[in-house]
Design a protein around this nucleic acid. Structure first.
Lengths: 193, 193
DNA sequence: ATCATATATTTCCAAATGGAACTTGTTTAT
DNA sequence: ATAAACAAGTTCCATTTGGAAATATATGAT
């Protein structure tokens, strides 16, 4: 019973996934190839799932509050940990400092956060949500939580615990991963416009 | 034995993760808050892990080949599934069509891919790697695979299978998730520039 | 004390980005 | 058969982005 349905003559790189989903319902062939025929199955699925979350939610934030993704990330970050520095938000979010600097300026102007110089170290600006900023955080948070709960509906409670634990293991190991890869030149020409 | 170490008076949102990693070695307080004190534990960990992979690798691609992320994504996509359309790459990668259109033009100019009109449907341009393009793909792929393997070193073989299966479940369920969230206005003012 | 080094943040600016309009070609409805 | 609707891809252009330099402050070495 050979399927012709786009199945590749390629080893299956997905450990623990039986053949079933290859002829995936609702997924185009290239997405299927990236999901099931990709030696980097983990990182593609990470990016894919992150995207399926980020796009609708940050789009909703933009339409609802007129805030860009980095701007909302500042709000969310302070919602979880108030009184932090721009640097902390940069490190934990991956947005560059200058992008966050602009976001912070705009949020201060909107009265959603306040920025006070730290007297102990005058380079540092301590950031806090204002009452309005916290109201926005608390109003918007349920959308994010609900969407995540919807994503997790596919798993039962045990599976959620297992997934949480496995991802936590990866995150804890991540402090040992390089933030940059060695800089030697390749045999290919460097091809710039 | 109460720790003062930045632990919040906040419920622990991470199912299946014991208290240990809260005082996480090598993670700053805000990252720890986002990882262990975040109601959206899944999606933050997805984004966090994706970032720890994307940043060093696409940075390496840029330095080594002078290709931007969307440009390399085209190469990688065709490496996995040759003879696809720009649309397929857009759908499977999340990059907008126009960004990919420019990337494709540059890659054609560099001789790394070729673009031929489909006679059956003349709107469509079938994309294929050239010999040089495939060489670049095959030379660069091991970097990506090696990095992913390094990420997975934290897990044993059973755990990898479990993680793969759980993420596959989420991906298969994702066809039912909305790509956009309802557009009603909020009680907050719309705060633009 | 002084100077080099490191850090937090901001500013500058060339380049990338992406929404929207446009072009070309195909499908569907009447 | 014709027109509306749809789809792939490109172009336009105002905005965003992020690397690098600049600024201000702090730390460490001599």
């Amino acid at each position: 019973m050979q399927s012709r349905q786009g199945r590749q003559d390629r080893e299956d790189f997905s450990p623990g996934v039986t053949g079933g989903p290859v002829a995936a319902a609702g997924l185009d062939e290239m997405t299927a190839a990236k999901l099931w025929g990709n030696p980097c199955w983990l990182t593609y699925r990470l990016n894919y799932l992150a995207l399926r979350y980020n796009v609708p939610l940050y789009n909703w934030v933009e339409r609802t509050y007129g805030l860009s993704r980095p701007e909302y990330v500042v709000i969310y970050s302070l919602g979880l940990k108030d009184g932090a520095l721009a640097r902390d938000i940069a490190n934990s979010s991956g947005f560059p400092q200058n992008t966050l600097s602009r976001a912070i300026q705009k949020l201060v102007g909107l009265g959603l956060i306040e920025r006070t110089a730290d007297d102990a170290d005058r380079r540092c600006n301590v950031l806090r949500l204002t009452k309005e900023g916290r109201a926005l955080f608390e109003e918007s948070l349920p959308r994010f939580v609900d969407f995540e709960h919807m994503m997790l509906e596919a798993l039962d409670e045990d599976e959620r615990k297992t997934l949480s634990a496995l991802m936590a293991k990866l995150v804890l190991a991540s402090t040992g991963w390089p933030g940059r890869i060695g800089r030697e030149e390749s045999s290919q020409e460097k091809a710039n416009s």
